[in-house]
């Protein structure tokens, strides 16, 4: 039997962030922004892209300089690098997308403590070449953004009766308010997580055997 782990292709490395190791539905990381900002699709996309930006540049830098950083200061150095990119993302949003920046509020600066970022930097970027780390970061970022989009879409449709701010139903529709409140976030996340993992298990030959 051929050892597949040696021949990790770029596609596999990218796709694992979306399905096999999806940061939201499988790794269950970064729950604070996942639950807090997904009241609408636009918020989900905005948060997803901001996180991807930070993730891509932090892992690129970490995988490039990993040899030069003494182990004692590894975490502080990465924390500074991550914080730098988060601040840049926050300033860029404030300058070019003020309404989005206002609706994401404190959750953009809070990307600093999003465990997906430190997780990927520590678990992947410090052990792999910059090229592969970039692919990993893009995959994880895409998986995070897509998950937030789906959550945001479900919550916006049910909780506000709209999608991307455009009303979907007539005047008579009374939105399920709970869906845009915190309990709605937990309910949606739980249901989506169950569906995601059920579908994933069905298509995963390894899981079927065990």
């Amino acid at each position: 039997m051929a050892d597949t782990t040696v021949h990790r292709s770029i596609t596999t490395e990218f796709m694992k962030g979306i399905v096999r190791d999806n940061p939201v539905f499988v790794q269950v990381l970064g729950m604070c922004p996942v639950l807090a900002v997904t009241t609408s699709v636009a918020n989900g996309i905005g948060m997803g892209l901001a996180t991807t930006f930070v993730l891509v540049f932090s892992t690129l830098i970490a995988s490039t300089v990993k040899g030069g950083v003494p182990p004692q200061v590894r975490i502080p150095v990465y924390a500074v690098v991550i914080a730098t990119f988060v601040t840049i993302a926050d300033l860029v949003l404030k300058a070019f997308f003020p309404p989005l920046s206002a609706s994401l509020g404190p959750y953009v600066p809070l990307i600093v403590v999003n465990c997906i970022i430190m997780g990927r930097v520590e678990a992947f970027a410090t052990r792999n070449r910059p090229g592969l780390s970039l692919v990993d970061a893009l995959g994880m970022g895409a998986g995070f953004t897509l998950s937030l989009m789906v959550l945001g879409a479900v919550r916006e449709i049910l909780g506000s009766g709209a999608l991307l701010g455009v009303a979907l139903f007539g005047e008579g529709f009374s939105p399920m308010l709970v869906m845009i409140l915190p309990p709605g976030a937990f309910l949606t996340l739980g249901v989506l997580m169950a569906v995601f993992n059920a579908v994933k298990a069905k298509n995963d030959p390894v899981l079927i055997r065990t």
Binding site: G68, V69, P70, Q72, V73, P76, V77, V80, V81, A83, T84, T87, I88, L91, V92
Partner: peptide, 21 residues
């Protein structure tokens, strides 16, 4: 080395942020 690296990273980060801001 540890002091130099951490100080260097912080100074660099400060410069980048000052420029962006």
């Amino acid at each position: 080395k540890m002091i130099i690296v951490l100080t260097g990273v912080m100074v660099l980060s400060g410069l980048v942020l000052a420029g962006t801001f």
